[in-house]
Amino acid sequence: MTHLIEVDSVSKYFGNIMALKDVSAHVNAGEVTCVLGDNGAGKSTFIKILCGLHQASDGQYRVDGEVANFASPREALDAGIATVYQDLAMVPLMAVWRNFFLGSELQQGKTPFKRMDVAKSKQTVVDELGKMGISIRDPEQPVGTLSGGERQSVAIARAVYFGARVLILDEPTAALGVKQAGVVLRYVVEAKKRGLGVILITHNPHHAYPVGDHFVILRRGEVLGDYQKKDIPLEQLVQMMAGGADLETLQHELEKAAAQTGDDELAEAATAFGEETEQLGLGDE
């Protein structure tokens, strides 16, 4: 079947460094694909290929089954692929409605008297956010007065309103508290219900698991697996994310160093680390 967007055996080299190797993943309309990976797993490179900032060195990138070669983020955006970055591209001192329409202002009137349609802009913002379950007190309030989760939500609502079919969310919950992260995740589900394909990039399996339909695990530039939710319990996801084997190696390294130097503190740290690894493996949440 054709997927909304799909990457097929995509690789990316920077000189002789291989950032991604044979990565395949897809998202369908009304589906949330979570891409999980630790630092250095290749998440950023993956996003940059999807949003048109980088081009793949190898492999195919398909949109609606047709090969797409985006030369710039603008082209990807025109194809309905919107990326919400961590910094959100918003101006804190400006009102919510001004930010929402920044660069694509609603206008009315003939040329010398062309002006923004303020009332309609404000109403649209209230409606669009309302649809996604965010009640905004006053569209005139500066974005800087919104909480992190609300800001993230406004950025997502903006992408949806301007015609996105696929939303790529880069670590949307990374800088948020539990409650705020909940608001954003709820928003992800809303976007999915409205028929968008969502690619959620995160290092937090606890945030990904409740909203995801399937999970692509990246490690050191390669796909470790692409699992349907029914095929993988949260515990296993956490373990794979943490990279059980890697942690064990790390523990051994610490122990070795402790033995060599005879440093008690280091030995203690190694033991503590081992216990933690075990706990992670069991998955306490």
Partner: peptide
């Protein structure tokens, strides 16, 4: 003109009252 995607507009603050 902006393109819009999505279902019927629902009432703001109706179904999802006050999540913040």
């Amino acid at each position: 003109m902006v393109r819009r995607i999505g279902g019927e507009p629902s009432q703001p603050g109706g179904r999802y009252k006050d999540v913040t």
